[in-house]
Design a protein around this nucleic acid. Sequence first.
DNA 1: CGAGATTTGTGCGTATGTATT
DNA 2: AAATACATACGCACAAATCTC
Lengths: 135, 135
Amino acid sequence: MINPPYGTATHRQIAAVLRDEIHTGRLRPGDRLPSETTLQQQYGVARLTARRAVDVLRAEGLADYQRGRGVVVREQPERAELVPPAGATVTSRMPTPEERDDLETPEGVPVISVVAMDGTIGTYPADRWELRWPG
Amino acid sequence: MINPPYGTATHRQIAAVLRDEIHTGRLRPGDRLPSETTLQQQYGVARLTARRAVDVLRAEGLADYQRGRGVVVREQPERAELVPPAGATVTSRMPTPEERDDLETPEGVPVISVVAMDGTIGTYPADRWELRWPG
DNA sequence: CGAGATTTGTGCGTATGTATT
DNA sequence: AAATACATACGCACAAATCTC
């Protein structure tokens, strides 16, 4: 198990295991993932490999690093309803680091960008907002 | 320049320089970024550090790795208009690796998730679709 | 309060494999 | 065939934040 190169990279295999534990609910929001050291021993890999596995989950918005504490399964906040102005164009993309700072969003969370017809731009963290299509 | 630890990490500083070159247009879509080896020499850092800098840009959806070729500034495809069914709930999030495979989206691109009132779920790469709010 | 253990953050070096040019 | 460039993996070290005692 977790047999090195090719096919699927070791760190992706480990990431898949952890992801599954999150999706099945064995690991719940707020729970800590195994530490990098633990994963290292558990799978017999280098720390960097263990870390990269966790990196994958962070990029997916499933987990957060907390230096000194560990890695925790992300809480999914309630989404409020976002109502754009009539005729606005709505897109989604990853934020710049500055935007992440401003909006206080963790990594792995896209932003919803709303461009009104007068050119006004609104930017909303996608983990806290949703749209309800009219009709 | 690029003075080691703390304040801002070296790889983030390098990422900031590259990001700026993309945003100012010095590097344009389709252009190749400096190779990891070049960055390594240019900034006097380890290859891993250079790579991490580029990783940051990829996570933001600004660049793509192409093994054997280099790292290129991502082309921004045209966005088609997505029209959800009436009453649908629209959210955005990062895709799982499986979804990325299915949808053939590069890293750093969110998906738009459309949940219709009957429970049907549609998933659309956010770099190829946009919404026009009615009214 | 402080000292130590734990855990992540960042950085260095090295090696080998695979894809493209 | 060879050079270039990314992909993955190993190792080590020290700093900073947090937790525990």
